[in-house]
Nucleic acid binder design. Structure first.
Lengths: 197, 197
DNA sequence: TGTACATCAGTGAACGCGCGTTCACTGATGTAC
DNA sequence: TGTACATCAGTGAACGCGCGTTCACTGATGTAC
């Protein structure tokens, strides 16, 4: 049990920076997320974070990775073992809810700035992508093109999330958002285009 | 015919700012888009743009509105009178191509910063939204829930655009991107969920 | 148990930067008579 | 056609800001003997 307000040697500055970053994100959006602000919030000198993060991008990447984990957990909680199209709808609703509950985090997770080559981020997105593919395979075992369908499902919910986040679709009423997501997923799965061809 | 390098009284500084902003966007991404940079590029003092734009946000909004118009034109050019599911696929491909051709513009168009209440932007997005709805109604005249389907289609292509833009889907090969978009749209329109219920 | 020392985490002053915006101004334009 | 004047577009100096990052440093910790 460390003293609550010990000076010097913070104890877990790495974690504290992460937490501070998350708080700033919730309060000020991604714009307010500077290394200096994080240090300030963690009660530490502006340069202390450099002991734990190479630079600003490194912090952002860590935040994004954490976000991926949380999103995966949140979706899993929405339906532990999705096996039917309706289960998939529940997961879709959860995806959009997560985005609207943590808008700035979501932007950090899916925004260009973090360099695409980063290993940590690449691993996190790969895991996530695999989750979506498995999800679609379980809910549509007989699909002709499972990979394409997985991509489409991800894109669909991702698009719904961002259209709400960016104000193209009205996000003021959470219940209405849920309904819209359900309706969109349902519409897409029951509309038949011309076959084969 | 105005002199090419007339000093003072630019002639069309408003338009020049817009053009400069677009160039900066293509070159440096949205990060490089400052009022000062725009003024610099337009060959004018840092404060001259204030004659034509109330502030930075006003410029951004103008750029975004222009973008909406161009996107609409680009989609219309992809298929002037879409009337079948396959035509819709062509438009979907065009949407993603536009995003990848003008990544920073696309982000400005669909990013939070511009205040959601702005009339010009609201009008532009409403027009666009109506276009998508009409598009879906023409390609799926018998759809049960045309509005929901329109939302879903927009979300699908929007999601595909951003997943490519943000590196979640590999965008290095344009032909592969086109194919992926086509496959995703096709997969979604030929997969049947459980009906009614 | 006690001391010497290497290691490590955090400090604080300083750098140079570009930004948005304000202000009082001045040069060019066009209109009224 | 010529002059007086109002209007407008652009200037340039200045403000205060917060940022990322560097550097040489110092205080705390833990290990070896």
């Amino acid at each position: 049990m460390p003293k609550p307000s010990s000076p010097y040697h913070h104890g877990d500055l790495r974690g504290a920076c992460l937490r501070a970053a998350r708080e700033l994100l919730e309060e000020d959006g991604s714009a307010g997320l500077s290394l200096r602000a994080v240090a300030r919030r963690a009660g530490v000198s502006p340069t202390a974070p450099y002991r734990h993060y190479a630079d600003r991008d490194a912090l952002l990447t860590a935040v994004a990775s954490e976000g991926y984990g949380e999103l995966a957990g949140f979706l899993a909680a929405a339906h532990p073992a999705p096996a039917a199209p309706d289960d998939l709808t529940a997961v879709a609703v959860a995806y959009v809810r997560f985005a609207l509950a943590h808008p700035a985090l979501f932007r950090v997770m899916f925004a260009e700035p973090c360099d695409p080559g980063d290993a940590e981020r690449a691993a996190a997105t790969a895991t996530f992508s695999a989750y979506v593919t498995a999800l679609v395979q379980n809910t549509f075992p007989g699909a002709t093109a499972p990979d394409a369908l997985a991509t489409a499902v991800w894109a669909l919910v991702h698009g719904l999330a961002f259209l709400h986040l960016d104000g193209e679709l009205d996000a003021t009423d959470p219940a209405a958002v849920d309904a819209r997501v359900r309706a969109a997923v349902h519409a897409v799965l029951t509309t038949r285009g011309q076959d084969a061809r």
